[in-house]
Simulated scan of single mutants.
Amino acid sequence: MQCSYFDAHLCRSCSAMGVPYAQQLQAKDEDARALLQPDDSVNWLAPQSSEESKFRNKAKIVIAGSAQNPTLGIVTRDGQGIDLSGCGLYDPTISAMMPVLRDLITRAKLTPYNIATRKGELKNILVTVSSSGESMIRFVIRSKKLLVAIRAEIPWLQQEITGLKVVTVNLLRDPVALVEGTEEIILTEQQTLPMQLDQLTLHLRPQSFFQTNTAIANALYRQGQEWIEEVQPASVWDLYCGVGGFGLHAALASTAQVTGVELSAEAIESGRRTAQDLGIRTINFHAEDATAFALSTRDDYPDVLVVNPPRRGIGKELTDWIENSSIKTVIYSSCNARSLARDMERMPSYCLRAARVLDMFPQTSHYEVITLLQRDVEPR
């Protein structure tokens, strides 16, 4: 893949741009193997490749410039906007939205926020699309001043963007380096975006997290499901469950009683909606801190524990709890193999049985790795 923005040094986020894709994938696989130090007993599966471009199902677009001449992309450290509306990583549905969003900003006089002067209203536009071409657009603004103007343009937006289902306003009042705030105002009758996977449809609420690459998310959940099917557990916990991808697939693959735990109440509501649609009665969701939930349990351990934490990993408290538990199998999915390696060192009773790299982020050095850990000795 070639990118004119990268070549012109306007955006250097894709650090592997220009490197042949097969070489990128091999480097990621070798990096994970070196960090996790597998021996001959580890079933190291072939890495899962991705499309090289047009794979991103979401866009986090920083708005700068003026309402008459906005930029849709990123900003420099001094607050200057760089337009990246032609980014080749975007799903074609997102790419087709860009001129419409640009016209909307001018049409509705949505004044971009200026970081240096702290004036203006529109900070970011967040877009998510499904594999069926349906979409959700969220306008991150400084105050409610633009609320009426944005609401008035929804019929026009839905006319111009086929499949637009959800439109919201997110309030980010403070001058902080965040993508979004905590307050969300849904402006459409439909409140969730259906995200189709192979075996189920997840319902994404505005602040729910979902993986950036839908095809790789599918492969990730299938791999976890396959390992759970092999174990046939009576109980499964899915910590850091997000909208319930691993837990729902576990419920489909076994008769296990499944528990999903996620701090985000928005994500938990998404998981419950999907379970209800599928008629799954063997899964329960809890909007709680994953570590606190686990530490409150001392003897009623699950047969299989699935964890899919943020980049920082699960940390000492949770690894100590796992190490001293009677859990036989842990499936650990990580977007940071370095924090995964640190967490594994804290759980010496577990051996790495199988692992697989999945290329969630082509053109970068980042990747997802999913591991199957099984207890080799009883806890001390």
Rank of each mutant, 00 (worst) to 15 (best):
Y5Q: 13
F6T: 03
D7I: 10
H9I: 12
L10I: 10
M17C: 15
M17P: 02
Y21N: 00
Q24C: 04
L25D: 06
Q26I: 07
K28R: 08
D29G: 08
E30R: 13
E30H: 10
A32D: 03
A34I: 11
L36T: 13
P38F: 11
W44E: 01
A64L: 03
S66P: 09
Q68D: 15
L72C: 02
T76S: 13
D78K: 14
D83H: 11
D83E: 13
L84H: 06
L89T: 00
T93Q: 11
A96S: 14
P99K: 07
R102D: 13
T106E: 13
Y113S: 04
I115T: 13
I115H: 09
R118C: 12
K123Y: 11
I125Q: 03
L126I: 04
V129A: 05
V129D: 00
S135F: 00
M136C: 03
F139L: 04
I141D: 10
R142T: 10
L147R: 12
I150W: 01
I154A: 07
P155W: 10
E160V: 01
E160L: 02
G163M: 04
T168M: 02
L171I: 15
L171D: 09
L171V: 03
P175D: 15
V179R: 10
E183N: 12
E183V: 14
E189R: 11
T192G: 01
L193N: 01
M195K: 02
L200D: 05
L204G: 05
R205P: 03
S208Y: 03
Q211K: 07
T212M: 11
Y221Q: 02
R222F: 04
R222M: 06
E226H: 15
I228V: 15
E230H: 10
V231F: 01
S235E: 08
Y240K: 10
C241E: 05
F246D: 02
G247Y: 06
H249Q: 14
A250P: 10
L252M: 08
A253G: 05
S254H: 09
L263S: 13
I268W: 01
R272Y: 05
R273N: 13
T282L: 12
N284M: 03
H286C: 10
H286G: 00
E288R: 13
A290Y: 09
T291L: 03
F293H: 09
F293N: 01
T297E: 13
D299I: 07
D299L: 04
V307L: 12
P310R: 06
I314H: 09
T319C: 13
T319Q: 05
W321M: 09
I322G: 06
E323N: 08
S325C: 10
T329N: 08
Y332I: 07
S334N: 12
S339E: 02
M347P: 07
C351R: 15
V357W: 04
D359I: 07
Q363R: 02
E368N: 08
L372K: 05
L372V: 09
V377A: 03
